[in-house]
């Protein structure tokens, strides 16, 4: 029984770290311009496809990751420039709806260009099973995913809190107008945020495709939604919150399935979202901030 629980915990952490990786990008974009970027899940899909073609061309995991992150960063900046920047002064709901539009556009462009069928992802990482003790096993891909997530989160924390660009980002997040008056180039800062957020989505896409070896143009929808739940759970806009939110969500889902209630898994995930929104709308890590008047 103990072994069973530990094994399920490992399963939960490994799926949770993928949610966390996607949630990092969500939370970051929200933190800066208060936009829930619904196209994030589809940038994730594009990343997976870049990884797919890179892997087919014979590149290893590292270079596939780098390539996918680079392409997605450019894509993110383009989306921001073309779709969101012209609406900078508009109401938030307008930008939100635009984000949904961008999401549909990417999905259907994907179907048009690549076909709707799921394609098998080449095996670029040899999966090795390690036995920890008794019957409990963990495989190399699960370890890689967790490692990639933690490394990227630490890097992100560093960029946001220790660099000049990070300072600019925090300033824009706090008050866009005041930041502009202080001589911060707001447009560049937002572009940079999108580049990083989208690069994270691209990395998540490749890692996801390595773990669950298939890619298709609609693959971003469900992970995108789950990551959104994770981001809200941890406190949207807060970077460590995304990691904790993702892990909690993964463990809860696995726990529900492992107790024999596999039908209730998604129900439990979204029930948590509702409970959090009722009792602590700012998330586990969030502080209650009074609206500025």
């Amino acid at each position: 029984m103990f072994e069973y629980i530990v094994q399920q915990l490992i399963n939960g952490i490994s799926i949770g770290s993928i949610y966390a990786l996607i949630a990092l990008g969500y939370t970051m974009v929200y933190g800066i311009i208060k936009l829930i970027n619904f196209a994030h899940g589809d940038v994730f899909m594009v990343g997976a496809f870049v990884g797919y073609f890179a892997a087919k061309a014979g590149l290893g995991l590292f270079w596939s990751l780098i390539l996918a992150m680079a392409v997605c960063a450019i894509l993110g900046v383009l989306i921001e420039r073309l779709a969101y920047r012209p609406l900078r002064g508009a109401a938030r709901i307008v930008i939100l709806i635009t984000a949904i539009g961008v999401s549909f556009l990417l999905e259907n462009l994907g179907i048009y260009a690549l076909g709707p069928q799921a394609k098998g992802f080449p095996e670029i990482v040899t999966k090795t099973q390690y036995t920890l003790f008794g019957d409990v096993t963990i495989n190399s891909v699960q370890i890689i995913v967790l490692a990639v997530t933690v490394i990227l989160m630490v890097l992100l924390q560093y960029v946001v809190h220790k660099t000049k660009m990070g300072k600019a980002m925090r300033a824009v997040s706090y008050d866009m107008e005041a930041a502009r008056l202080m001589g911060i180039n707001v447009d560049t800062t937002i572009s940079f945020t999108f580049a990083i957020g989208s690069a994270l989505a691209g990395a998540a896409g490749v890692v996801f495709a390595v773990m669950y070896p298939s890619v298709d143009p609609l693959m971003g929808i469900i992970p995108g939604l789950k990551a959104f739940v994770a981001a809200v759970l941890g406190g949207i806009g807060i970077i460590p919150g995304a990691l904790v939110g993702g892990l909690v969500l993964g463990i809860v889902e696995t726990g529900v399935s492992s107790a024999g209630f596999s039908l209730w898994r998604d129900g439990a995930a979204f029930a948590i979202l509702i409970l959090i929104l009722i009792f602590k709308p700012s998330g586990l890590f969030g502080k209650n901030v009074r609206e500025k008047v």
Partner: peptide, 16 residues
């Protein structure tokens, strides 16, 4: 046991 179309991670149920 059951899953839903479009699910990707089956480790929890498979461990069971």
């Amino acid at each position: 046991e059951s899953y839903q179309t479009k699910d990707t991670d089956f480790n929890a149920v498979l461990t069971r």
